[in-house]
Amino acid sequence: MSETPLALTVNGEPVRCSASTTASLLEVIRDQLALTSAKRGCDQGACGACTVLVDGKRINACLALAHSHAGRRIETLEGLARGGLNPLQAAFVAHDALQCGYCTPGQIMSACGLLSEGGTLDRATIAERMSGNLCRCGAYSNIVDAIAEVASV
């Protein structure tokens, strides 16, 4: 597989790396850039553990071809956490919104995207719009509590 140069903006910093033409954005973020908050759960868009923001919108990094996203602005949990806990992170801690924690970075990035999408939120809407993120420990109820607190609903 041929490696070709790839330029991205990741967590506000311009980065240049070399990536296979077949690499997913997730592979580049984890393996080239050593940002490991985004997880490879299912690698087929079903679990949401790889959720990152691209130009402010949440996507599954495992489904995104890396070179297709050259020049885009990528945000991962590492960027969100700069300068102390983000309010969503603090709320996840306060509400025990995790057990094993594997899905948590994806949950928080997804929630971050959700909160920027606008519209009226209630618990049912939050649950529906977080359906792209699985939690095999079953912390769903607490996850919704955490997001609801930050959304002030």
Binding site: G45, R58, L63, S110, S131
Partner: peptide, 9 residues
């Protein structure tokens, strides 16, 4: 259709 993450892609 699908999930919000997929609908954004």
């Amino acid at each position: 259709t699908a999930s919000p993450q997929i609908r954004n892609l």
